[in-house]
Simulated scan of single mutants.
Amino acid sequence: MGLKGKLTAQKEIKAGGDVFHELFRYKPQQIPNISPTTIQGCDLHEGEWGNVGSVYFWKYTIDGKQEVAKEVIESIDEEKKSMTFKVVEGDQMKLYKAFKVGFHVETHGGIDLVTCTLEYEKLNDDIEEPLLVLGFVIKLAKDVEAQHLKAT
């Protein structure tokens, strides 16, 4: 088995891809209000909100367990409405040598699709693929969509 892997999920979002991208780029500190059962906190540790190199500290619940992650914004592409976060500390680093979370928004035939990609390198072959993390991200996208649709 390989230690490196990549998982991708795509979710249609009726709230509009701009809403999703702008929330994660400029206002991630509002996500705990939108999805409190998923994200309990997002603090800025270094840099400025929405800039490459900025460091965010997340508190979240996955599979009923409270966890934390310190992430650096590795890249942003406004045209593709994409962001990539590199996890540098936290619970995922107990299982993975490297862990990145990327989001981007595509529009096909007037339908906005949010795509999440997890890239990882497991510490050993006994570690499971991060399918729970992928499910967590899909739930988060659903919560963002529901909040936006409720507000409009």
Results as ranks from 00 to 15, higher is better:
residue 71 E to S: 01
residue 102 G to K: 02
residue 92 Q to L: 00
residue 99 F to Y: 14
residue 87 V to W: 04
residue 133 V to L: 15
residue 107 T to P: 01
residue 140 L to F: 08
residue 90 G to Y: 04
residue 21 H to L: 13
residue 22 E to D: 15
residue 148 H to K: 14
residue 136 F to T: 00
residue 25 R to S: 09
residue 77 D to G: 13
residue 55 V to T: 08
residue 38 T to A: 04
residue 24 F to E: 11
residue 77 D to H: 13
residue 78 E to A: 14
residue 34 I to N: 07
residue 107 T to H: 00
residue 105 V to M: 01
residue 132 L to T: 00
residue 94 K to V: 02
residue 144 V to W: 10
residue 17 G to Y: 14
residue 132 L to M: 00
residue 7 L to G: 06
residue 101 V to L: 09
residue 127 I to V: 14
residue 145 E to Y: 01
residue 86 K to S: 10
residue 102 G to C: 04
residue 125 D to H: 09
residue 23 L to P: 13
residue 135 G to M: 10
residue 149 L to W: 11
residue 112 D to P: 05
residue 131 L to H: 14
residue 47 G to M: 05
residue 61 T to Q: 07
residue 124 N to V: 11
residue 25 R to C: 09
residue 122 K to P: 11
residue 21 H to T: 10
residue 146 A to H: 07
residue 120 Y to Q: 06
residue 54 S to F: 05
residue 40 Q to M: 07
residue 92 Q to K: 06
residue 6 K to V: 15
residue 87 V to L: 03
residue 51 N to K: 12
residue 40 Q to E: 04
residue 134 L to Y: 05
residue 144 V to E: 02
residue 127 I to D: 06
residue 39 I to L: 01
residue 80 K to V: 09
residue 79 E to I: 11
residue 23 L to E: 14
residue 58 W to N: 03
residue 38 T to D: 03
residue 66 Q to G: 07
residue 68 V to E: 07
residue 137 V to M: 08
residue 109 G to D: 13
residue 29 Q to C: 06
residue 138 I to H: 05
residue 14 K to F: 10
residue 91 D to V: 05
residue 49 W to Q: 09
residue 28 P to R: 03
residue 86 K to R: 13
residue 106 E to A: 08
residue 110 G to H: 07
residue 91 D to I: 01
residue 95 L to T: 08
residue 143 D to N: 11
residue 84 T to C: 13
residue 147 Q to N: 11
residue 137 V to R: 08
residue 66 Q to N: 11
residue 133 V to M: 13
residue 16 G to L: 14
residue 15 A to L: 13
residue 85 F to P: 04
residue 101 V to K: 01
residue 92 Q to V: 03
residue 6 K to L: 15
residue 148 H to A: 15
residue 44 L to H: 08
residue 78 E to V: 14
residue 63 D to N: 09
residue 146 A to I: 10
residue 112 D to M: 07
residue 151 A to I: 08
residue 5 G to V: 09
residue 84 T to I: 15
residue 136 F to L: 07
residue 73 I to C: 04
residue 103 F to P: 07
residue 47 G to R: 08
residue 103 F to H: 09
residue 130 P to M: 10
residue 10 Q to D: 14
residue 57 F to T: 00
residue 33 N to T: 05
residue 54 S to Q: 05
residue 35 S to P: 02
residue 101 V to C: 01
residue 137 V to L: 15
residue 72 V to G: 03
residue 88 V to G: 00
residue 9 A to R: 15
residue 106 E to D: 12
residue 36 P to F: 06
residue 5 G to R: 13
residue 46 E to T: 10
residue 19 V to H: 13
residue 47 G to Q: 00
residue 81 K to W: 03
residue 140 L to A: 11
residue 116 C to N: 01
residue 32 P to F: 02
residue 61 T to V: 15
residue 39 I to F: 04
residue 63 D to T: 04
residue 110 G to R: 07
residue 68 V to Y: 03
residue 35 S to R: 00
residue 80 K to W: 08
residue 19 V to A: 13
residue 23 L to G: 11
residue 83 M to R: 12
